[in-house]
Structures are given as C-alpha cells and as structure tokens.
C-alpha cells in the first residue's frame, strides 16, 4: 500500500492546481443524524466551494460515509440544513430528484445494473431523466468510456468486467449525467491492489478538469495529490480540517495523530 501511495504522489509529482472558486455549492449547517439511538452525525458544519476537492478520512463507524450519503439524500438527516447548488434538501421529492441529477455518486460496491450492457448502464439516466435523444446519449457515453479508457467494453455486461473496470464504468455512468458535484464513497476499498491505481488515475484526471469532488477514502497518497482540504472525522465529529500538507505533516489533534500513525 505504501508503495502505491508513493507511486501516485510521484507520478503527479506536485499538488494539482486548485480550481476552487468563491461560489458555495454545498452548505451543511448543524446537521444531525441518528441510526436508531446511535448519534452518527453530530452538529456537522461544512462548506464546499465550487471546484473544491475534499478528502474525508477517519476510522470506520466515524460517520464519513453517512455524511456524503446525506448530501444526495440516500440517507435522511434529522436536524440541520443541507443546501446543495442553491436547493435546500427537505421532504419535497422534486428537490431531492433535482439534486440527485446534479450530484453523481460512486460506491464501494460499484452498483452497476447487471442486467444491462455497459452502454445501456451509461445511457439510461441521460435518456430517461435528462430526456436526451438516444443517439446523442450513446455518443456521449462512448466519449466518457474513452475517458475512462474502456470503450471496447461497451457491449459487455458488468459481470464480464474486472472490479477496476466496473468501477471506472461506474464513474463514467455518473459523469454521463453531467453532474456539478461528484461524491466518492470508498471507491477503491473493494478492489485488488493492482486495480486501485487504474481507478485513482481516472479520479486524478477528473480532479484535473475542475470537478467539485468529495472523496471518502483511505488512499492517503491520493489525498495528498488532489485534495484542497482534508477532513478527519471521528465519532460523528469533524475533528480536524486542514490543507493536506499541514494535515499530514503537522496534525493538531491527538486522535488525528493516532489515526495517521496507524494508517501511514
């Protein structure tokens, strides 16, 4: 793992130029959530600017996945306010549907549709949600498959692809909806080591295009390369939040120090 981390850091060599602007695109204030009686998110405040790239890390059960799943309402928050792209997340289903078309998400377990071909996986959303003509949607999908470097797999089914390829298809599927924000929920945790790199490469390229990204990951090399900010969560709190150099070289909080000593 350490080898890989250094590799990626070296290949990109220097920190990517930040594309962050002043425009706020995600605004969480005093967000609380419980699973039954378990308090999983505690008074979370987080502001993300357009083009900003954020890496969220922390031990398992710290609430980092729940946090980003709240942003596109896969999980419902119980208290506080979440505003995405100017729209407040509330009970209104139209708001939820609208936000989901603007926010792409990539999962640990890919969640591709096994009964559809790769191309159909990519065009389903654009055709039925974005109402794009079929030919245009397919051309668009092929363009994104080129970008994740697997255009030759278009007519296969997900079950015929390797894990790394499936995850790249999942990234392409989200991009086909032309989202403003991309969420990644441990995108490389289910992959073999040699496949992690191909997925991270695609994500680095994506970061290079100025996409707003929130990534939950344990790939610290990747965090160093692309992050504008690293957030460390523990027990439902944001414990520490800093730009990557300072975060990795000079952690402030005891829990951060402990976590970094275990993982690096």
């Amino acid at each position: 793992m350490t080898d890989l981390n250094t590799q990626i850091t070296q290949s990109a060599d220097q920190q990517l130029v930040s594309a962050a602007s002043n425009e706020v695109i995600i605004d969480l204030s005093k967000v609380n959530k419980w699973y039954g009686t378990f308090h999983v998110l505690k008074d979370i405040d987080l502001v993300v600017h357009k083009g900003e790239r954020i890496v969220v890390c922390g031990p398992s059960g710290s609430g980092k996945s729940t946090l980003i799943r709240c942003i596109n309402h896969l999980e419902e928050h119980h208290e506080g306010n979440i505003v995405v792209d100017g729209i407040t997340l509330d009970k209104n289903l139209k708001h939820i549907d609208h936000i989901r078309t603007e926010v792409g998400m990539v999962f640990q377990s890919f969640n591709l549709f096994p009964h559809l071909t790769i191309l159909e996986n990519l065009t389903l959303g654009p055709i039925w949600v974005r109402k794009m003509p079929k030919a245009e949607a397919e051309a668009n999908a092929m363009m994104y498959l080129e970008r994740v470097k697997i255009p030759e797999q278009a007519d296969k089914y997900p079950g015929q692809l390797s894990g790394g390829q499936q995850q790249r298809v999942a990234i392409a599927r989200s991009l086909c909806m032309n989202p403003k924000i991309m969420l990644f929920d441990e995108p490389t945790s289910a992959l073999d080591p040699e496949m992690i790199k191909e997925v991270l490469d695609v994500m680095v390229e994506l970061a290079d295009t100025g996409m707003t990204m929130i990534v939950v990951t344990h790939e610290m090399g990747f965090a160093k390369t692309i992050a504008d900010r690293v957030i460390f969560m523990d027990d439902g709190d944001i414990v520490e939040e800093n730009e990557p150099n300072a975060f990795f070289n000079n952690p402030q909080h005891e829990r951060t120090k402990l976590f970094l000593s275990q993982i690096l």
């Binding site: 792409g104 998400m105 999962f107 377990s109 969640n111 549709f113 389903l124 086909c176």
Partner: peptide
Amino acid sequence: GQYEGAHTIGL
C-alpha cells in the same frame, strides 16, 4: 445498492 445506483442517476 441497486436502488441507490438508480437513485444516483436521478431515476
């Protein structure tokens, strides 16, 4: 995950 995958592409 299939429901979640479908929701995230806006269905």
